[in-house]
């Protein structure tokens, strides 16, 4: 790209930025009007959890989270449809292996804690899933071909677990309860925890599979040999 053109684009973009900042300033100066926050906080006792962000994510705006999990599923399907994964890394040296042996269990335990604590404090399915996914990334860096995930058939079940269970709960509630994803007050806490657990597993395995970057490698030379020895 030549220099003059990038300078011109720079000037136009800065004008756009100035315009946006001016609009933002006038919006802030005007009275913002009623907000959703008081309503969200007022309904908190009925939502089944005591942390407002989790209540918004899994109860008030559960549609959003359901569709977000569907976007994640679509992304991993796109990555898988592009062909097999590039070859993995060489087996790690002893120091990295020991580090992975320590970090991966710790990440899984911390993920479980974050999932549980999401009901009443900062935390929840996304953070817990991210920790599981990064445990997978570390395993892949340490030489595990499939980033700690099971074989392809099982991986398919794992990545649809979030959307699947979410939809199943929603449809069951629509048939037997008040409406799609409208939890009865008594069981709201456990339904939310159930959905969050499935979402954590789905997010973690999807992120790890996205890091592998293609269709899961078949059991290849070394891993197949070790599996045969183990069997």
């Amino acid at each position: 790209m030549n220099r003059d053109l990038s300078l011109l684009i720079g000037i136009l973009v800065s004008l756009l930025a100035l315009l946006l900042i001016w609009i933002f300033y006038t919006t802030l100066a005007a009275d913002p009007g009623p907000r959703l926050a008081p309503l969200a906080l007022e309904q908190l006792p009925n939502s089944g959890v005591s942390h407002p962000v989790t209540a918004v994510l899994l109860n008030y705006r559960a549609y959003d989270t359901l569709l977000e999990l569907a976007v994640l599923l679509a992304a991993i399907l796109g990555i898988w449809s592009l062909g097999p994964a590039p070859s993995g890394f060489q087996p790690a040296g002893p120091a990295l292996t020991v580090l992975a042996n320590w970090i991966v269990p710790l990440a899984i335990i911390t993920g479980g804690y974050l999932l549980w604590v999401g009901g009443h404090a900062p935390g929840g399915a996304f953070q817990a899933g991210a920790l599981l996914g990064s445990a997978g990334v570390i395993l892949r860096l340490a030489g595990h071909e499939r980033a700690g995930l099971p074989n392809e058939a099982a991986q398919r079940w794992l990545v649809v677990a979030g959307v699947g269970l979410f939809l199943l709960v929603g449809l069951l509630l629509a048939v037997f309860g008040a409406g799609f994803l409208t939890y009865p007050k008594a069981s709201a806490k456990w339904l939310i925890l159930l959905i969050e657990t499935a979402a954590t597993i789905a997010i973690g395995s999807t992120l790890a599979a996205a890091y592998v970057g293609g269709r899961p490698p078949l059991a290849q030379s070394t891993s197949a040999a070790s599996k045969d020895l183990g069997a």
């Binding site: 962000v53 996304f126 953070q127 991210a130 996914g133 990064s134």
Partner: peptide, 9 residues
Amino acid sequence: DVALAEAAI
């Protein structure tokens, strides 16, 4: 919450 998610994800 968002800070945790941004740092991790």
